[in-house]
Amino acid sequence: MEYNIKVWRQKNAKAKGHFETYHVTGVEEDASFLEMLDILNDQLIRKGIEPIAFDHDCREGICGACSLYIDGRAHGPDDQVTTCQLFMRHFKPGATITVEPWRSGAFPVIKDLVVDRGAFDKILQAGGFITVRTGAAQDANNILISHDDAELSMDAAACVGCGACVATCKNGSAMLFVAARVSSLALLPQGRPEAARRARAMVAKMDELGFGNCTNTRACEMECPKHVTIDHIARLNREYLKARFSE
């Protein structure tokens, strides 16, 4: 099958970007979107055109690297997938497909479709951890966790830090990401000792890095490949308020 790929080209962080349209041929229906980009790049290199830079790694939906905005949607037209799990069978043969990098002030473009999501790392460094005690591990039965809490915590921990929430939000807010991290740890006893400090530090860092605030449009929830819900934002807000009152 053949497609027209209208893609954002930008030489580096300082250069001015623009769209270019390329024709890609010989794409199998079962190819993933990233494999289609591999095929296009192979064809471009053979024509002497510089290949399109795009981020990817695990190609099975767990690393969160493949941050593409496809036809106006984060990770493209399928639901609850990352771009590597998006397949060409979702596009009509011959279609023109528009591909952009994440658009957010906090995620500057490095080249073409690759953005710097280092801001997420900085938020994690501000509080997305628990105290690691050394020495012999406790008996697991000393720390009882209800099945429901464990499941809820796991739902939040499913966040892969891809940044689709930020890219989708009209405020460029990272609330869903921060909420997933705070929530997954707040629900477990291991995360309680630093719960207040964590909520304060991660929210402060998020604000400092230029992410917007949440106005409950739920756009993030719609585009999250791991279906993290805004219930976790409510939990983050409660953790944050508690933390502020206990200061």
Binding site: E28, D30, E35, I39, E60, C84
Partner: peptide, 11 residues
């Protein structure tokens, strides 16, 4: 494997 365009196998 689904064809010769594949780059990655999923476990």
């Amino acid at each position: 494997v689904h064809g010769d365009q594949q780059c990655k196998l999923t476990l």
